[in-house]
Structure formats: C-alpha cells, structure tokens
Design a protein around this nucleic acid. Structure first.
Ligand SMILES: [Mg+2]
Ligand SMILES: [Mg+2]
Lengths: 662, 662
DNA sequence: AGTGTGTTTATAAACAGGGGT
DNA sequence: GTACCCCTGTTTATAAACACA
C-alpha cells in the first residue's frame, strides 16, 4: 500500500517500518479519499518477548529481545507501586552489577506491548560524583568538562572513577577514542586535504578499530544498517569531531561514511544530496572560507552549536555508530569517495541500484546525549562548567491536592547561546543568577505571546516558550514519558539541557550576564505579541532542567532554585539526588533527572538564522513530553552498587508518584 | 528517463518541461554513473517564430508566438547598435501606441532562439511622472504609495495619468480590482468564517469577474494550468490580499484555489500538505492566535513582509493569475473545498488520480512586480514613499577603460526591514544618507566576510553581502541579463528593489535612521567574520537599485549618489532618467531601471527567523544577475508617445554600452 | 476514531556557478 | 578557447511520519 519509495524517514517515533528497499511501486493510490492523507500503514508488531517472569500484581519482566543488558517490565495498570519497585529491585539485584540493569517500563494497559511503543530511555549516572570524561590528554582540557555518563552504567559503580573513560568494557559503546581528538589541534588545515583528512580521521578513530563488529548479539543491527540519526545530527557529529569544528563537504561525506558504513554501501548519491541540502537548509550550518579563499568549510554557528558529538549519543544497540573506519579505508587515499578518480573510473563502480533503506529505528531506546563541551576536541569552543548541560535531580514535589492535573511545575531552561570563545570566563559565582530574565533575552522571538489570552495550543514542535506570564511551566498528568521525552529513540530528537540551566523563574532578572553572549538584545522590528505561543495552553510537560551535578567536582550551579517563588514545593539540594532518582507526577513522571533526548539539540537551531533567533534556539529545550499516556516508558535503572540506599532514594520518588500513574 | 514523478518544480529558469502527468515510471536508472546526478533532460525547443522581419545587420523582428503586443528581436552579435535602435524605433512606431510595444531582445549568437532562453522582462514606465496606482479610495492612502507601472504600458502615455489605474485596457492584466481591497477593512474577521471568507474574497475579486478567460490567445495557458508561482509566493499573495494580512489555513487554501483553479482540480491533497509545509518551514510565516484562542491565523512577519500581492506579479501570459473566482464559487458556501463536507462526500469526489502538473513556466517573461505598499488593502502596513521600492535609473557611467571587466559598479540596497507601521515618517530629506553603513546594520549575519581575502565564490543563492570591504559591488561584463535578473520568468524568483535603497556605499553611516526600524542592533553572539561572503569574489552583476521616480510626484530619493565615492563615473540626477532609459555595461546591461524579479521578495525572508536576520533578509535584494552572457534579453520598451526624445534618451544609454555588448 | 492543522525529516530535482579536462 | 562534466551550494517540491486539538 505504500505508494512512494521516497517515503521520508522520520527519526521520531518510527513505526519500526523496517521495510527496506521496497521496489519503486508507485502504485497510483486511487483509493485515498480526497483531502485526506493516506493512512499510515500499521507496522507489524514487534516480536514477542521470549522469557517472562511474572511478579506480583501481574508485573512481568522479560528480557529485551535485542539488548542483553535490558529487561522489559510490563506493568499492569492495576499494579501496585511497591510491587513494581520490588520487582525492579529484585531484578536489579538478580544479576549483580554486571547483569541486566536497564529496564523498559511498559504499561500493560493496552494488552501487552504495542508495536508502536515509544520508549524513553533514561540513563542517569547514579554513583557519587559521576565520572568525567576528559578530552584526551589532560593538558588539553581547558575547563571542567561535564560529562554525564551515558554508558551501560557498568562504569558507574563507585570504583570506576577514572577520569578519562578510556577503557569502557562495552565494546559496542566504546568511547576510547573520545580523548583522541584533542591532540594535533588545527593540524594541517586547508592543506593537502586528502592527506590531512586521513590524518585527522585516523587520529579520531584509530582506537575504534578495536571494536569487534562481529561480536554483537543476534538481533542487533548490523554495521550496514542505517544509522538512527538525522542528517542534521550526523553533520553535527562530523563537524564537532574536528578540532577546528569545521569541515569541508568532502570531509563530511567521508566522516559519515566512515562512521556509518551504511552510506558507503549506497550506490546512489542521494544521501550526499541530502547532506548538502541539510547544510544549506539549516541556518545552523554556515560556510566559511579559508583565508586564501580556496576552501570552503562548513561550520556550526556558535550560537546554535551544542557541541554534539557522536560519542554523546552513542547507542549501544546500534553498532554502526561506534564503528570505525576499517584500516583499509581510513588510511588509504580516499579518492574513490571524494571523486578524485576520473569519471570513467567512477562510472564502472556503479552497480545495482538500491534505494536508501529507511532509517533504522533505534532498536529500543537510546541513551541520552549530553553536551560534553570540548571533551573530544581541543577546539577553542569550550564551555565552563557552569555552562555545561546539567540536569537537576529535583525531589518529588510535595504534591498538594489542589490542581487535579497539570500541577507539576517544571521549567525548561532557555537555551543559553553557547559561548564558544575560550575568552568566556567561568562563572563559578553563578549562584547570583536570577531566573526569569534569563529567558527573556533569549526569547526575543517566539516571545511570550502577550497578546490575546488563550492563544492556540498548537505548538511548534517541541518549542515551548517560557512565556513570561508563565515562566514556570506546568506538567500535565500522564503526559511526560509517552513518546515524549526521548520519543522512540529514533535518532536524536530530543531536547537536551544544554549549558547550565538558568531555569529562570519569573522574578528577578539578573541572569543576563551569561546570556549576554547569546542574544541579549531584542531585535528591532520583531513584535512578540500575537505570535502563537507554541505549546501554550496545552503544553503538558516540562522538564525541570537544572544544573546537573558536576561530574568530577562540586556542583557549579548553586543558584538553582527555580520554581520556589511560584511553587510551594521544597527544593532540595542537588546532592541529594546524585543517585538515581526520578519521580512521577500524577500519572506521569514529573520531575526527573530526565535528559531530554538530543533531538532539540539537533533541531532547535537548525533553521534559525539569527542570534536573536536564540529565541528560537530556545525551542531546542522544549521537550517532547506532551503525550497523554505513560503507557510506555523505558528507564535505565542503574544498580550501581546495588545499595539499598540508592534504591531507597529512587523509592522515595517512585512511591510518591507512581500510584497515581499506574 | 526521468525516474521520479515527484520531480520538484523549480520556479526559476524552468526549462519549459511541460511534461505533465508523466506516469510514475520509476525506472531504475542503472545507467547513471555513480556519484553523478542524472543529466537534465533537454526540453524541446520552442516553436519557431512565424513572421520575421529582417532589419539591417541581420536584426530580425518577429512576433511573439503568444503575446500579441510583444515582438522578439533577434540581434546578431555583429549587429550594430544603431541598427538595433533603428529597428526598435521602426517597430515601435510601426503600429502606433496601440501596437506591439514590447520587445524581447535575443542574442543571435547561438544560431537562433535557444530553447532554454531566459528572458528578462523589463517593464518600465517611461512617461513623465509615472502614474501611481493608489490603493482604492483616496482616503485610505496614508502615504505616497509608489507604484511602478508594470502594465502593457498603454497607460504610460503622458495623457494617462489617472491615479487609480482602474481602467487598464488589457484584460489579461487587469488590475481594476487593485483598489477594491481597501474598503471594508477588517471586516468580519474571525466570525462566520465561511461567510466572511466569501465576503472578503468576492470583495477582493469582484471586479475581476469581467476578465474574459476565453478571450486569450491560442497558445496561452489555460485557467487550469499550474500557476508559475511557488507555494511561498502564493501564500504571500493570499495573506497579503487580506486587509488584516492574516488568514487561516483554510482561507489560504480557498484563496489559492480561487485564484489558481489548477488546485481546484487536484484530486490529491498533496498541495495542501505543501502549503502547510511551507507555512511551517518558512519563518516568514508565523502563526497568531485570535484573542479567544480559538482561531489560528497565519501572518507574515512584518520584517519580512514585502507586501507582495498577486496583482504585483500578475503576468499577462498566465491567465490563471488574474482570474477570478467564478461566481458560482466565490459566492457559494465553500464546504466542498474547505472540508466541510463529510469524508464520505469527499470520497465520492475523488476520481482519477492525477499527479500535480509541474509548474508551468512563465510563457515567456513576466512583468516585474513591485511592492505596492498597501495599495490593495487598508492595512496599517504602509510604506512611506521613501521606503517604497524604487529603482534608480542611473545614467550610463563614463566607462573608463581601466578595468577590462567587472567595472560597472552597482550596488544592491540592503533590504531595509520593512517598517510596516505607518508611524514611520517619510524621509524626503534622504539625500543625506551615506551609503555603506546602511548596509552594515542590516547585515549582522552573512556579514562582510572580513576574514581571509578571497573567500569562496559560491553564493547563497541571490544573496550578496555588501561586504564592507567592498560596499560597492561591481558588475562583470556580460553578466547582467542572461537568466539573471528576471530569470526566465518562472515565478517570482527575483529580487525586488524594495523600500528605498539606501545604496549604502562605504563611507559615512547615517542611513541608520531608516534602518533602525529593521534591525538596528547587531545580535550578540553572531560573529560576522569567517562567514563565507556569498557572491563575493565572483559576484558578477549588481543592480544599482536606486530610488525610482516617484510615480505621481517628484522623486523622493534625491540622496542617491551611490558609487560616486569609489567610482569615477558621473552620477546624473535621477530626473534625467525618468523616461525609458537603460544602458549596457560592456556586453551587458549594466545600469538599468531594472526591476529585479520578485523572486527575492518571496524567498529572501522565507527561512529567516530573526529581525537581526535582516542580514539575511538582505538576501532578498540580491539579484539574479550573475550570468555570463547577454544572449537573451527581454525588454519591454514603451513608446509611450513615440516621441523621439524618449527614444533619444534611451539612445544615449544604449549607444554607450551596447557596442561592447553586441 | 477520524479529521484538520502543524512541525519535521527525507528525498529528488532544478539550477547556478566554479573548476577541471 | 570552448564545451562538457563534475562538484558544491541553494531552493523548491513532494511525500510522509507524527503530534495534537
Ligand atoms: Mg546553512
Ligand atoms: Mg513558519
């Protein structure tokens, strides 16, 4: 029934199409009613889970079909929270620290696993201070880089505190090459492009060669599967992998081919067209010219650069992401890919014409990427710790009974236009920041809809303006996790708490100092009124993005007391939540160490062109948390040491909010 | 060979594909070399011109196949300029003021008419003060609206000075309804949508009903042909047709269907998807919400609104553009189109599934649209005369022999972010404006590439930054007209000299007063250096957009002395060029009352989101004038009174530059 | 449950223009 | 010197996935 072979590949909430290379049918769709889009084909349901262990209240825990360290917990709506926690605890302890320690929580409401399940994958380091991944040689690290460990959590036990993260044991998520990029900064740029290309790439990926591609599980995606990242994401990965944070088009091609071998196998160059298209389309990518005017480099506009790198979004289930340039590729001259060969030589290379496979859905979830400012490169772009992405682990609010729904107040930190000049000083004294005004200068556009009252609720997807009339955004019940925050893991679609979240609450407005670098001045000519406040009225869930714990040191974000002025809830110090903790709000998670998925990291700034458009960049912090059901939740739970204390902490949060939800 | 039925429709430089409804072939293109896009199919050549009159030097004048008032002049490269002028004069006098008075100038170099000829259609009023089209009732005109007459020039004789332009005799380019929109402002908005819709539309198009659709020529496009406008253009037409300059989605649908019946005939709703896509994609379209929050209106961001209306781009050759809601349609409830009918009712309406036809190329050329600020509506958006689009008719510079090529200096006025508040005062004292600095505040982004010297020559299409190191842009020889300025008339693709051109030359920067409304402040965080200066280095031709003569009064732009600081040429007062005059530069037209085509009007602001992005809005003023050959030029020459004086004026310009060209 | 509206991504393609052969 | 081809870059069109009211 699918008519077009060119069906767009949607990274978000993929319906697991998995139909690859359908021949160009091009059937004339004479059956579709006029004015109505063709119905979305229903994907076949996922395979049943093999082994199910039934806990009290009907809670079932089954192994994930593809991820050995993950289990799926099917929770009936009638299940008791204590049973859920008990089951999770039991399972968490079952295999010890090396056993499966990730759980996908699924609501059993719809009679089992739904084929269009949207998983939220929360990966949160729960150890004492999380390990910090420093960028390569220690000398290259200019500031305190912040790294939230997103690995299978095997490194999160209290003993794994090595700061360089080099020997992670999961080969599929190997991040050894993380620190390699810091060396040889700005080396051989603009000269001997082919050679320097190989140098840089081999340098970047030399350690990756140790990864065994064949070592994967049975159902895992192969190397040649299409990566679950959008073109925009991959381009960012590529560019940010370079010390200079710039790349020529050819280098981008090559980087993507090297890291996502799927594209090597494409016989048609359409994907390159798409790369170019994305570069041009999205304003976040700008072109610079070498001093001699000979070479064009693509860069990421600093205001919009969230320093996304592949390592931050590396997904264990997808092997291709970690993969590696085969030695034969990374070291040989790349004439073939770069068009250095004559056209006749290239002509013979073409063979069977194969269409692009649709994007592979992430097998089940993805680990949330975090902005690791300059940990992988020695670029001048470096964020002081106070600017680093942080997620505040907030305690569950003392949910008063007043508002039946939509009472969890969570704020989204405005995207602080990322100052990538090293001249930007650290702001260890960030505690003086006021909260609301921080948003205001950042949102000159898409401004607070101060016009009419209601305003439409239709949102620019994932853009929510912290309207100044409601700087504190409200959660709505059962809207948090379903298909929302991390979506279905189909490729970097979520928001990331980038930089330190001012979590500006309405009130004093002194936070502009950090924000001055982004978009301090409201552009003339822009009229904030009347613009439909995206997400207004119907906005459901907001993450309280607060400074996360600084990985290797004390928290740099003491001034985070966001909602206090407008909320009755207590705000606990962050340290109390350094371990796994999240909470439900009503029937949904409400305040969470939720790392919004990197989606907005990738999308928010894409089309925005102006620094004043940082108002639009703020869209990047909107969470995809506006769903109504918490039927499907994927949560990585780390039983780092299996201490009951940690579980107890989690227990507090859960026990407080899960009852409403289940 | 064309593989995909979904071939995009390119409005610019259409190759006259005219292949409509090619069945979904989807042939596997096994013959295309790897890495190389399939070759563009060569369209069949245009039909031969029937009757040719040969003038000395081999100059041939033939009747245009489709436009009765147009003749095509094929000029061999060896032809003498005087012969060209003589031929044009003879032909111009041949039929008197009512005879054919438009000429398409074609270079005979390539052995005749090329099938991919790109015509530049210059329509320039040459009478004394050109008539002004006032917006409807005189009382509604708030400022001196500027209207460059783009009609068949029959109204440009010195006797046709009526200010309301109502009785234009060309039915195909009927603009009678221009003034009608001014009445009933803000009428019945948001209430009884269907009814008010009909009201507004019938009001808008009531006079258009007199247009005879069947009266066209033999080869003319029919009503159901696809309009030559992009979706973005049509949306702007639609929205700007409303007094409030806002429309709901349904209204946009209906407006487009009414004015472009082609879309009525579409059985598949893909075009609506495209409408929605364009609304979302382009930042120039924003959504507003009614005070009660019930209705969403789509608006055009004021900074980016150039007030384009269909009447400004009305093209005589395309009947669909002027056409008119049949009475049966505009007055009946529009349930069928607006989805008011039940789905089952709609279902029966679907019949044969027909694919969208590709965009019709403009039959030959198009009349350049001008921004007629608020002439069609009584909206508050109204440009004072000094802000109105203006083209300066500059004298041919005394071309010194110094630079063999690229010596014509023409500047592009930065797009002054369009102040649509009537509060903006006129600036009759605009002569004090300095030239360069005006550009600077407008181009905070895409800024002057002050990094390396050369910079890449690849441009963001039609965006040229007046790099501050070269505020005066240079023409390159034979680069002006071919496919450039007005392109091939495929749909609103060109730049328009919008607002008054500050033509900021490097030097004193006092022009910011007018610019203050647009984007006075450079956004923080934006780093202008290193951005590849689009069009730099290889930019070929720039139009010297200077204030055009005010239609019904003295010129309001006395301060136009753009290049003088940096050029050796004399700058004549504008009044000297009030009549037809244009000149060649080297082998190309150089300084010209050239109205860049409306393309940039439509495209420049589309994706830009920020007022600071006015720097990007400046792209809108980039001309598509970067071609290398002047092989094909379409020029409307108006022999308004057939006075030899007028021709003499033209003669001066021509004689000075045509020799190098031909 | 279905439709309409809105947001994004993917893909193909037209075309410009530089540079190489 | 020119024609042709490839590469890079810019836009537009179209389909589709998905959110959400
Ligand atoms: Mg770009
Ligand atoms: Mg928009």
């Amino acid at each position: 029934m699918r008519r077009s072979p060119r069906r767009p590949l949607i990274l978000k909430r993929r319906k697991l199409p998995f139909q690859l290379n359908d021949p160009p049918a091009n059937v004339v769709p004479s059956k579709e009613p006029y004015g109505r889009p063709p119905p979305t084909p229903t994907p076949p349901p996922n395979g049943p889970f093999p082994t199910a262990i039934v806990f009290p209240d009907g809670i079932q825990v089954v192994s994930h079909p593809t991820r050995p360290d993950t289990q799926v917990v099917v929770i009936p709506k009638t299940a008791d929270l204590q049973c859920v926690i008990g089951a999770l605890t039991a399972k968490g302890k079952e295999h010890g620290p090396n056993g499966p320690n990730k759980f996908i929580l699924l609501s059993g409401s719809s009679g089992g696993l739904e084929n269009d399940s949207h998983f939220v994958h929360l990966s949160e380091g729960d150890g004492p201070p999380p390990q910090r991944i420093t960028g390569g040689p220690p000398g290259n690290v200019k500031e305190e880089g912040v790294c939230l460990d997103i690995k299978p959590l095997t490194g999160l036990n209290p003993f794994n505190k090595d700061l360089d993260c080099s020997p992670l044991d999961d080969s599929l998520t190997n991040m050894q090459w993380l620190g390699r990029m810091s060396t040889d900064t700005e080396k051989s740029e603009g000269s001997k492009e082919n050679y320097s290309l190989s140098q840089q790439e081999s340098q970047e990926t030399s350690d990756s060669m140790v990864v065994e591609v064949e070592g994967g599980g049975e159902a895992k995606a192969t190397l040649s599967d299409r990566p679950p990242y959008s073109y925009m994401a991959m381009i960012q990965f590529a560019i940010n992998s370079r010390p200079g944070r710039r790349m020529t088009l050819k280098e981008i091609y090559n980087w993507i081919e090297d890291h996502f071998p799927f594209f090597q196998q494409q016989t048609k160059p359409g994907w390159k067209n798409s790369i170019r298209h994305n570069l041009s389309l999205h304003d976040m990518f700008t072109r610079e010219t070498s001093p001699d005017g000979k070479v064009s480099y693509w860069t990421i506009r600093p205001e919009t650069d969230r320093c996304l790198t592949l390592d931050q979004v590396v997904k264990p289930g997808y092997e291709g992401t970690v993969t590696l340039v085969p030695a034969s590729r990374s070291l040989v001259p790349r004439q073939e890919q770069t068009g250095m060969l004559s056209s006749s030589t290239r002509s013979v290379a073409r063979g069977c014409v194969r269409r692009m496979k649709p994007l592979l859905p992430r097998s089940d979830s993805y680990l949330v990427p975090f902005q690791l400012p300059a940990t992988t490169t020695t670029t001048s772009i470096f964020l002081p710790t106070s600017y680093s992405p942080q997620v505040q682990l907030r305690p569950a609010p003392q949910r008063t009974r007043d508002t039946p729904r939509a009472n969890k107040r969570v704020r989204i930190a405005p995207k602080v236009a990322h100052v990538d000049a090293p001249a930007v000083p650290l702001h260890p004294t960030a505690k003086e920041f006021k909260e609301e005004p921080a948003c205001v200068p950042l949102t000159p556009r898409r401004a607070p809809h101060q016009g009419g009252g209601g305003g439409s609720s239709r949102r620019k997807q994932r853009l929510v303006l912290p309207a100044h009339e409601e700087p504190v955004l409200l959660f709505q019940d059962s809207s948090f996790f379903d298909s929302g925050v991390a979506s279905d893991a189909s490729g970097l679609q979520d928001t990331q708490p980038e930089l330190s979240f001012k979590t500006p609450v309405k009130g004093s407005g002194s936070s502009s100092s950090l924000l001055a670098s982004s978009t301090p001045s409201k552009p003339a000519g822009w009229e904030p009124w009347k613009v439909t406040p995206l997400g207004k009225g119907t906005q459901r869930a907001m993450l309280d993005f607060s400074p996360i714990r600084t990985p290797s040191g004390p928290l740099h974000t003491p001034r985070h007391t966001p909602q206090q002025q407008q909320q009755q809830q207590q705000h606990l110090p962050l340290q109390d939540y350094s371990s796994f903790s999240f909470s439900f709000n009503g029937t949904s998670f409400t305040e969470l160490p939720l790392f919004s998925s990197p989606r907005e990291l990738l999308t928010a700034c894409g089309r925005d062109s102006s620094p004043v458009g940082a108002g639009r960049s703020l869209e990047g912090l909107m969470l995809d948390t506006m769903n109504d059901s918490l039927s499907k939740v994927l949560v990585d739970i780390s039983f780092s040491g299996l201490e009951d204390e940690d579980l107890g902490t989690a227990n507090i949060s859960w026990s407080e909010f899960i009852p409403q939800m289940l």
